[in-house]
């Protein structure tokens, strides 16, 4: 497997040894912690209120209320099956792809409820993008077409130069431009796993969403590709509101400003948000014993 992510001279940060850059990442992170008590009218801030998520008769997630601040990374952690992925998918109504899924409660962004009566889930997804666990570039499309997929499939007419600009801008935004600029017309599936995932991120930001949801984006990647993605998240949070679900607590600690811990009492029971706080606090001095057990590895 080739990992041009570390070899490329333009990416000075990734060239540094892994340990150093992680501490560097942590440094940047603490610099930009967003005040949780920021003004309410902040654009792109997400307010979740009393959200219950159901699949048919099954209640998957119960009574979640949280505030997700813009220009930051919010991590959701918790044991398998605790509903954190379901919750993430409910933030852009992707969970509705499974028939019989519905919610109770509200998710408000920019004064609008995502679950309001006249809201079109398709329109929601254009504003709130998503990156998945496994990289999933469209196999029938070239790298450039993958990036343009959102725009093109939504029948936006793009002039050739606009399209080229958008491809370059998005790929640069995903730190992938230098690695693929010579083979934009080649299939996206020819890239390495980490590059494919960054291509998917480029594809997601090309539709210019306000929020970027990431569902365990690194779980299928090797450590070096993971580092490249984490690096990218820290850059992207200046422009987007990023929410990430991760199994990897170190990752949550490295990249996020705030962390929410989900848990579940037993199989068949709904998942719940146990606590949410600044990442530092969750990992050093959480207020709930359950959280303490989980982050110290005694449970889950």
């Amino acid at each position: 497997m080739n990992r041009p992510a570390v070899k490329h001279p333009n990416q000075s940060k990734v060239d540094t040894p892994v340990t150093e850059s992680i501490s560097a990442l942590q440094a940047t992170q603490t610099d930009s912690v967003v005040d949780p008590n920021a003004p309410v009218d902040m654009p792109n801030r997400i307010d979740v209120k009393d959200l219950d998520i159901y699949y048919g008769d099954f209640k998957a997630v119960e009574n979640v209320s949280m505030t997700i601040n813009p220009n930051s990374v919010t991590a959701l952690i918790g044991p398998s099956g605790c509903g954190k992925s379901t919750f993430l998918r409910s933030l852009n109504r992707m969970h509705e792809v499974i028939s019989g899924a519905y919610v109770d409660g509200s998710v408000i962004i920019n004064g609008k409820d995502l679950y309001g009566p006249s809201v079109d889930p398709v329109a929601v997804r254009r504003k709130i993008g998503m990156v998945f666990q496994r990289p999933n570039p469209f196999p029938t499309m070239s790298i450039a077409d993958n990036v343009l997929a959102g725009k093109k499939l939504n029948s936006k007419r793009l002039s050739k130069s606009d399209a080229n600009d958008l491809v370059e801008k998005s790929l640069r935004g995903a730190n992938l431009w230098d690695e693929v600029k010579d083979r934009l017309d080649k299939p996206g599936s020819g890239l390495s796993g980490g590059q494919q995932q960054r291509l998917c991120i480029a594809r997601a930001i090309a539709v210019e969403p306000d929020v970027l949801l990431m569902d365990e984006p690194c779980s299928a990647l090797d450590p070096i590709s993971t580092l490249a993605i984490e690096e990218l998240m820290l850059e992207l949070k200046d422009a987007y509101n990023i929410v990430i679900v991760t199994h990897n607590m170190q990752q949550a600690a490295r990249v996020s400003n705030r962390t929410g811990f989900f848990s579940i009492e037993g199989t068949g029971k709904p998942g719940k948000l146990i606590e949410m706080d600044a990442t530092e606090k969750i990992f050093s001095n959480p207020s709930k014993q359950e959280t303490q057990d989980y982050v110290t590895g005694r449970f889950g």
Binding site: K112, A123, V124, K127
Partner: peptide, 12 residues
């Protein structure tokens, strides 16, 4: 961000 974030325009 806030200029066209209307979700209630039906799409397609």
């Amino acid at each position: 961000s806030d200029n066209d974030s209307a979700f209630d325009e039906p799409v397609g």
